[in-house]
Design a protein around this nucleic acid. Structure first.
Lengths: 217, 217
DNA sequence: TCGAAAGTGGATGCGCTGTATCAACTTCTT
DNA sequence: AAGAAGTTGATACAGCGCATCCACTTTCGA
């Protein structure tokens, strides 16, 4: 169809890589809201150079996150490979959310993308059956409450995702406390005395969380 | 201090009320993001009229939400008045969140106000001790897990608040399911067979939720 | 080595959105 | 009827992020 790919000039290739690196950094730290101008500046490159390589931001995002999204699918497969159904499910949730806690852009891509940029769309379709299996297996094994459905998982991820977003700058591991709490609610045979592994936030920390500007969004 | 209040002219008073009504409607339905122009138009009044009565949006918000915020404090007091500590706590959470589910502006005021506009600040100071008492009482009564602190409450409200926001247009009562789930996690003596009172969302509903534009914020 | 092709930079223009103003006009009050 | 109070909405303003353009620089290959 199209002409054969001509290799980029040496300097151009170098700059392309710089842009990708800078974008990776900024998306991870500040989310998808960063402007291409930000990225250009962070990459020590003119804005024009960025636009020459990537016609719009979406293309850049797609290029960067393709593999990241794959990771999540892999996580679900690993969870399914665990002989213990409950541990498999919990492991998936923990690792998946951890990924989102460490990468703001990924979290936004997963949760805040209106119609998915195709990329997310595809991932979701691959993920859904795995998720279903993960949940049903844990339920059939009697570990998960009987009235929990696979559809509950995305909602749970949203809840914890909110904690992740809001507490990220104050106490980045705090979300684990609330995941554990929710997991207690999900268990069929509620493990009584198991204490939460993450301490409650201090009054001061909550104060700072509440005063934090909301989003970005 | 200031001169004696001269009553507004009859038409002015009527317009003031129209503005207040329109603002109430719009803030409730669409959140605090609505512009004063929107409000003016909705009130069938010129923009200038709005600015004459309310120097800026914040003043209008303060005027409107003063009582709403009081309601929440009242709720906490009512919860504390319940002889059953657990039921008191749960009741407070359910009603408080219900208020937020029905009033987008209120929810945003409570959760998304950077430094509170004074109004929220004050309410929080009145609320905090009540909340502390509510939680500690339930904990001492052995209904609540021992490792739950009053500080956990705001975070729980955030989690559910996120569900409220995201599912409002698809299934406005869905948040109750996830509140119940969290409550199961909070109980000291996990009530085993009590099924969730709200059904899981359908696959299609989750789909629509995920495709919904995120915020506003 | 040198000229054409490829690549670069960043000031600049555009479009959008929300806030707030103002001067001509209308309505109320006494 | 006079003048104070109130109304109106077009319009100025400010901030933003996206994207372009073109004079200039670098690379490449004959």
């Amino acid at each position: 169809m199209s002409t054969v790919e001509r290799p980029l000039r040496k300097d151009a290739e170098r700059n392309r890589q710089r842009i990708l690196d800078a974008a990776q950094d900024l998306f991870t730290e500040r989310g998808l809201g960063v402007t291409l101008n930000d990225i250009a500046h962070h990459a020590d490159v003119g804005v024009g150079t960025v636009y020459r390589r990537f016609p719009d931001k979406q293309k850049l995002i797609d290029a960067l996150f393709y593999e990241h999204i794959g990771e999540i699918v892999t996580l679900a497969e690993e969870g399914l490979a665990d002989p213990d159904p409950w541990r498999g499910l919990v492991g998936f949730l923990e690792r998946g959310l951890d990924l989102q806690a460490c990468n703001r852009g990924l979290k936004e891509l997963l949760h805040d993308t209106p119609q998915g940029s195709g990329l997310v769309e595809v991932a979701r379709e691959r993920l859904l059956p795995l998720l279903g299996a993960l949940v049903e297996r844990a339920r059939d094994a009697g570990a998960l409450r009987a009235d929990i459905e696979p559809q509950d998982v995305p909602l749970i991820q949203m809840m914890i995702g909110e904690v992740i977003d809001r507490t990220r700058d104050v106490e980045p591991e705090l979300w684990r406390r609330y995941l554990e709490l929710v997991l207690c609610g999900l268990r069929a045979d509620p493990d009584p005395a198991a204490p939460l592994s993450v301490e409650a936030p201090s009054v001061d920390q909550v104060d700072r969380v509440m005063r934090m500007p909301p989003r970005r969004r």
